[in-house]
Structures are given as structure tokens and as C-alpha cells.
């Protein structure tokens, strides 16, 4: 399946049907490396994209992503199917990212939306020439968005990425991150608001 982003065409990884994925997982439980390779092929880009935005350094992202799949292979016998494989995999990824950040004592720049926004204030994009539907994501704008994601706290960033990039449902994110569903919703709201402010500031600068 291909998705067209302006001039960029991105091939999305194949998504296995539940039953097909289950049979692959069963083979993986028997230490079938070829079967596990299929899971790696299906998820490597998505996991790598998530990890890269969580740990920032590309070298760390590569290490952590490899570790995610190695840990998954080691522990797949204990995968009980109570959640989807994707949720389980992203839980491993998230935990490893948090561990890596703690180990390196890297303190992300936490931008509190509460400091910038008054209670009940509504966000309206002043310049309506900005139309996200038709806008082509040029390199500069993409950099702004990535930078804004990077300045969020890990808590907001993980929820934003899992919901808006991975398309996970609130419940699924709650399972993966081991937090209540309500917390997922509030964090998503704050994350999007933070991103909106950054995008708005960028467009204000472009216009003036």
C-alpha cells in the first residue's frame, strides 16, 4: 500500500491479518528465525521511526531498535496474546527508550503547555492560508514539526507518536504505556496543542 505525500511516495509496511500474524508468532515461539524475520520486516520501520523520535540520536535509535527485536525474540514464548503483537512490541520499545534516556541522564527540554496557555483558551490558527490538507510537507516545515516533537516531554511524545503515527487506539496506548485511558487522552491533547503552537509560530513568521 502506498501513501502519496505531495511528491514523496512512501511504501507502508505490510500489515498482517490477525490470523496470519498469529501463525507467524506460533512459529516464532518454536525459535523459527525465518518467521521472526517476517515480523521484523513488517515492523522495523515503524519501530525505528518511533524510537528515533524518542531517543533523538540516530546511533542510539539503531541500537535501541535492534535491542527491541532481540528482546522480543528472546521473550516471544512469554507473549500471551492478551494484547496485539504490535502493542507488545511498542511496549518493549517504549521501555527501552525510557531506560536509555535514564541511563544517559539526558534531560529533554520539557515545554509545559500550561505555561503558555491560559485555561480554556481556544487555539485558532490565525492564518487560514495554512491548509494542512493540501499543504506539501517541504523539508523546512518537516524540520519544524520534528523539532517541535523533539522538544516535548517523553510522556507527551510517546502518546502523540503512538496515536497519530501508529494509529493506535486509546486503549491500546494505555496498555502499551501502562497508564489509564484518560491519561492517554489528556496527554494527546497537550501534545497536539504544543505542536500546534509551534506550527502556528512558524507560519506567523513565514507570513510576516
Amino acid at each position: 500500500m502506498d501513501t502519496c505525500l505531495g511528491t514523496v511516495t512512501v511504501a507502508l509496511p505490510p500489515r498482517y491479518e490477525d490470523s496470519a500474524e498469529r501463525s507467524i508468532i506460533e512459529r516464532c515461539r518454536r525459535r523459527d528465525l525465518e518467521a521472526f524475520g517476517k515480523l521484523v520486516d513488517a515492523y522495523q520501520s515503524r519501530v525505528f521511526g518511533f524510537v528515533r523520535r524518542m531517543v533523538k540520536s540516530p546511533e542510539d535509535a539503531q541500537d535501541v531498535t535492534q535491542e527491541v527485536f532481540v528482546r522480543a525474540f528472546q521473550a516471544i514464548e512469554r507473549f500471551d496474546g492478551r494484547c496485539t503483537f504490535r502493542t507488545w512490541l511498542f511496549r518493549i520499545a517504549h521501555n527501552l527508550c525510557v531506560d536509555r534516556s535514564r541511563r544517559q541522564e539526558r534531560r529533554p527540554t520539557v515545554v509545559s503547555v500550561h505555561d503558555m496557555v491560559d485555561e480554556g483558551e481556544e487555539f485558532a490558527v490565525g492564518d487560514f492560508r495554512w491548509d494542512p490538507e493540501t499543504m506539501v510537507l517541504d523539508e523546512e516545515f518537516r524540520t519544524i514539526v520534528e523539532a517541535a516533537i523533539g522538544t516535548m516531554s517523553e510522556k507527551l511524545r510517546s502518546v502523540l507518536l503512538l496515536h497519530d503515527r501508529e494509529g493506535m487506539a486509546y486503549d491500546e496506548i494505555a496498555q502499551a504505556l501502562d497508564i489509564p485511558t484518560g491519561t492517554v487522552k489528556s496527554r494527546l491533547f497537550l501534545a497536539r496543542t504544543h505542536l500546534q503552537r509551534a506550527v502556528h509560530a512558524y507560519w506567523q513568521g513565514e507570513v510576516s
Binding site: 505525500l5 511504501a11 507502508l12 528515533r52 494542512p132 510537507l137 518537516r142 507518536l161 503515527r165 506550527v199
Partner: peptide, 8 residues
């Protein structure tokens, strides 16, 4: 917008 960021 987030969804449309390029794949890694």
C-alpha cells in the same frame, strides 16, 4: 500532520 511525516 504527524501521520504524514516520512517513514524511517
Amino acid at each position: 500532520l504527524v501521520k504524514e511525516l516520512p517513514e524511517d
